[in-house]
Computed example of a mutant assay.
Amino acid sequence: MSAVVRSDRKGGDFGWARAAWQQAGFGPVLLVLLLAVNIAVNPARFAPGAWGTLIGLAAPLIGAALASTPAILGGRGGIDISVGPLMGFINALIVLVLVQRLGIETPWIIVPAAVLIGAAVGAGNGVLATVLRIQPIVATLGTYLILIGITLTILPAPTGTVPAWLRALGGPLSILPLTAVFLAWIAIRRLPYYDHLMAVGSDDRAAYTAGIPVTLVRFLSYVITGAFAGVAALMMTALIGSADPSIGPTYTLMAISAVALGGVSLAGGRGGLLGAAIGAIDIFLLQSALTYFNLSTFVLQIAYGVVLVLAIVLTALHERLLGRAKETA
């Protein structure tokens, strides 16, 4: 009986830790370490009173990581590298077309427009990757180049301003669009679609045999990724307060690194938005620490590359340890 009690107590006391480990891997550990380093070297910036500003600074990266996650969960190498350029494209359309040329400043038009444009581009990626069965990274690379080209054509240099309500989302209120994304994901998790997505990402052949519409499930994952990228574009626009054609693409590799650091399997079928958000915060904290020491942008690029490799290695190690835990269970 004592053995049973110990087993139940272990599951009851540490079940939350086991669930966090399965979902986010090494991400929370890195979060604690990097937060401790940042507080030690720059306590003023990370004082509780400054957290609102920090959330606003980190929000676009967190949004980009959240947007990248659904397509990756769908498996078959569904890494959408067009998320960053899509954010920049939507940023240009909002400021240059809606605000400057058409004089539209109401959130009731701007917000739905950003989400719908993102979903439309995501649907295009979905057709290329799932219907035409082009390798996802190749398909989204084409979209990446097209979006950058269009953005630079209509917006060669930074310009414009944003409405006051949108600028306000660049600070503590950036938690509102982030919360909206999580609420949308919670709603998706309650649908049969979520189980289908994870099944397709884990083993698409078994899912097809079980009667799951694999192509439709993967197609919708790209649509969701595009819609979430539209929300991330709003947060980026709020942060910079204008239209800038050069900023969006910088989020591409950092977002993918964040997803991997957050324990989301790049092979699909495991992970979630919470892990991706933790990974994004990890990269933001690393960026803050390196910036504090006045390191050059070249060193930052090297650091991002190292983080990407480290994230992939840690994800592989995480999957191996989970596999061993299942074998011994």
Rank of each mutant, 00 (worst) to 15 (best):
I212H: 03
A229M: 00
S202V: 04
Y193F: 15
W165Q: 14
R218A: 15
T237L: 04
R205E: 14
L273P: 15
A184D: 06
I278C: 05
A227T: 01
G263V: 08
W165M: 08
W185I: 10
P245D: 02
P177K: 00
P172N: 03
Y208C: 02
I186T: 15
S242V: 11
T161H: 06
L155R: 04
T159P: 00
A232H: 06
P163W: 00
D203F: 02
D244E: 10
V223Y: 07
I175Q: 03
I247P: 00
S221I: 10
I247Q: 01
F219A: 11
A255F: 00
T153L: 14
G263F: 04
V231M: 08
P249W: 12
T209Q: 11
V231G: 00
R190L: 10
A232I: 09
A227E: 01
L253R: 01
G241Q: 11
A227L: 03
G230E: 04
A255P: 04
S257F: 08
F182V: 12
L273Q: 12
P177D: 02
V162P: 09
M236N: 03
V200I: 14
P213C: 11
A260D: 11
I256S: 06
S202G: 12
T179K: 00
L166F: 07
Y251Q: 07
G201Y: 01
G211D: 14
M254Q: 11
L191H: 13
A258L: 05
I175S: 09
R190C: 13
V162T: 15
W165F: 11
G241R: 11
A210N: 11
D195W: 08
S242Q: 15
G241I: 15
G272R: 04
A229Q: 00
G275C: 08
G160H: 07
D244H: 06
I212P: 01
M254L: 14
D204T: 02
P163C: 09
G170L: 09
A184Y: 02
M254V: 05
S174G: 14
T179Y: 01
A277E: 05
T215D: 14
I188E: 03
S265A: 15
I278G: 06
I212R: 00
V264H: 07
G271W: 06
A184E: 04
G160Q: 06
T237Q: 02
G230C: 04
T225A: 11
T153Y: 12
A267H: 09
A210Q: 13
I256P: 05
V223F: 02
Y222D: 13
A238W: 05
A210R: 10
D203K: 00
L155Y: 03
G263H: 10
A180N: 08
A206G: 07
V264P: 11
T237Y: 06
S257W: 03
Y194D: 15
A206Q: 13
S242A: 14
A233L: 03
A168Q: 09
P172Q: 11
A180R: 02
M198G: 07
G171L: 13
